[in-house]
Design a binder for these strands. Sequence first.
DNA 1: TTACCAGATTAGAATTATTCTAATCTAAAT
DNA 2: ATTTAGATTAGAATAATTCTAATCTGGTAA
Lengths: 142, 142
Amino acid sequence: MKELIAKYREKGFKLTPQRLAILKFLDGNTGHPTAEDIYNSIKKIYPTVSFATVYNTLQTLGDKGEILEITIDPQKKHYDPNPNPHHHIICLGCNKIGDIFEDYSEALRLPNRIVEEFKPVGNHINFYGICRECQKKQKRRN
Amino acid sequence: MKELIAKYREKGFKLTPQRLAILKFLDGNTGHPTAEDIYNSIKKIYPTVSFATVYNTLQTLGDKGEILEITIDPQKKHYDPNPNPHHHIICLGCNKIGDIFEDYSEALRLPNRIVEEFKPVGNHINFYGICRECQKKQKRRN
DNA sequence: TTACCAGATTAGAATTATTCTAATCTAAAT
DNA sequence: ATTTAGATTAGAATAATTCTAATCTGGTAA
């Protein structure tokens, strides 16, 4: 926590109690929470916290490159506190998201046509699958 | 058009004038339209068409595997009438989407940990870049 | 050709995620 | 202690999408 405080303060990030709670919730969290997940968690400690604060903080953290905004779920955004580029796999049954740290960049060579029209700056692979629990549920249904 | 009609009729897809207009609009369209783009286009011919019809039709076409729903834009869904798996590149400036038909599947081997937890069934790569026009705009601003 | 009905269409309301507003508050620099 | 840029808040606004329930119609079969 001490490091968290120092880390953000030195980036000119004003450290309010609400923000600290958000940072603490995100720190090391691999569950890919949504804004609502974060809001619900923070509300337990700061019952008057507002969604605006959550969204503002996430926006700021994203701009600073401290978290990733994941658009793999068509319903809502998820947030990933690991800012190192990596990929994700989403369960088509329950929308659970897993992390994939494999580096495929070497293999992802783009055709010239694209390189000329777009200046590519990054990539993100969405893998799709069925998680173990959802596989079980499917079997039960059959 | 004749083929379109035959193709969908034989899949038990009831062909209403509104649906035909949607199919015609989508056929060969590489602009990755949103539901609103489609609605606006169809409305010119059928002024009473409703968003529900557009969304219902897109949903049905998606379920039948005739179109792809693209979640690359955090604001809204885009639709791609080319159902063959392929990838996309989105301009970070204006959200324009380009198609990428390169096949990377051979290279995208997943770690065992993932294969065991999720049964992978597909993948989709989101590339990010800056399109020519947005590059020009950036230069002008400097 | 007609009657039928499963499924399609419609207007408009509802829902949901996210953003905006404007008043108030506060972290942290001086 | 004072100051102020930036953060917080409640609640309204916006925007995409889904739902509802009444009405309509394409396509099948009598």
